[in-house]
């Protein structure tokens, strides 16, 4: 049985696409046949993060409207045989996604894949609602910052009332909290919400904490999911996140502020 996982947040710019790329690549590296779908119709970006922007011929909307077959639209990742990308349309608008159309595509994908990762657009409208509607699991990406936490709570409300599982009295969507852009030094100074604060407010289980890292921008510059940068803190944190998602018990890392040298401690900075 394929599992449908939505990566969502409400707020934009918190790291949904970065997380979608990293987690889907992580699942594929662990041997699971994985497809990642860009639900951001009209403003696609997963393709450029995954370095396949020049290979897009057909897209998600073409498949829904039966202008192309699923296999024509799927792009095979060049780095991992288990990973495929279904890009968003750049020319249509969000209304091109219908519940029936999305269901048909997900049903067809479920025959070929173990994991279907849905990269949600920002906001709480049609596109975001379609991305989460059929989800079995939801990874809620949250920055340690007030507007992001508030928007995450709104998305949780939608998962609990407007998803297929909620509307059909099925077991609820399993929710996971993924904190990104976490900066232990700012937490130590009292300038940033700490992990237990966010857990207490959102009251969902913590899946992972991704530190603020130069490696994320470096990876996106090159079109490489950050998990492929195995030496980086963010890459390792995402690999740990994937392992936990698959049921392994891994301690959270990168939560301590770096020890500063003598001069820095005396003069600040």
């Amino acid at each position: 049985m394929a599992k449908i996982v939505v990566i969502t947040s409400g707020k934009g710019g918190v790291g949904k696409t970065t997380s979608s790329a990293a987690i889907s690549m992580g699942l594929a590296l662990r041997g699971h046949k994985t497809v990642v779908i860009d639900f951001d119709i009209g403003l696609r970006n997963l393709d450029i993060i995954m370095n396949c922007e020049r290979r897009v011929v057909f897209d998600f909307v073409n498949v829904i409207q039966q202008e192309a077959s699923l296999n024509q639209a799927l792009i095979k990742d060049k780095r991992c045989d288990n990973l495929y990308i279904l890009p968003a349309s750049q020319t249509r608008d969000k209304d091109a996604l219908t519940k029936e159309g999305v269901k048909k595509v997900l049903d067809d994908l479920a025959e070929q894949f173990d994991y279907i990762v849905c990269d949600s657009p920002a906001g709480i409208e049609q596109g975001a609602q379609m991305a989460l509607y059929y989800a079995d699991e939801a990874i809620v990406v949250t920055n340690p910052e007030v507007s992001s936490v508030r928007d995450s709570d709104r998305i949780l409300g939608i998962l609990q009332s407007k998803s297929f599982r909620a509307e059909n009295n099925q077991p609820p969507v399993r929710e996971h909290l993924l904190i990104t852009r976490f900066d232990p030094e700012r937490v130590a100074r009292g300038d940033m919400l700490d992990v237990p604060d966010i857990e207490e407010i959102l009251a969902i289980p913590l899946l992972g904490i991704i530190p603020e890292s130069q490696a994320v921008l470096n990876a996106s510059n090159k079109g490489m999911p950050v998990v492929l940068d195995e030496k980086s803190d963010a890459g390792q944190a995402y690999l740990d996140t994937v392992a936990r998602f698959l049921g392994e018990d891994k301690p959270h890392r990168f939560l301590e502020a770096q020890r500063k040298g003598f001069l820095k401690r005396v003069f600040g900075g």
Partner: peptide, 19 residues
């Protein structure tokens, strides 16, 4: 008070209200 503490208190209120 540290700004993170202020953030937490504000969030508790707004999230409870919106729920």
């Amino acid at each position: 008070p540290k700004s993170a503490h202020v953030a937490k208190e504000r969030l508790k209120v707004i999230v409870a209200h919106e729920r």
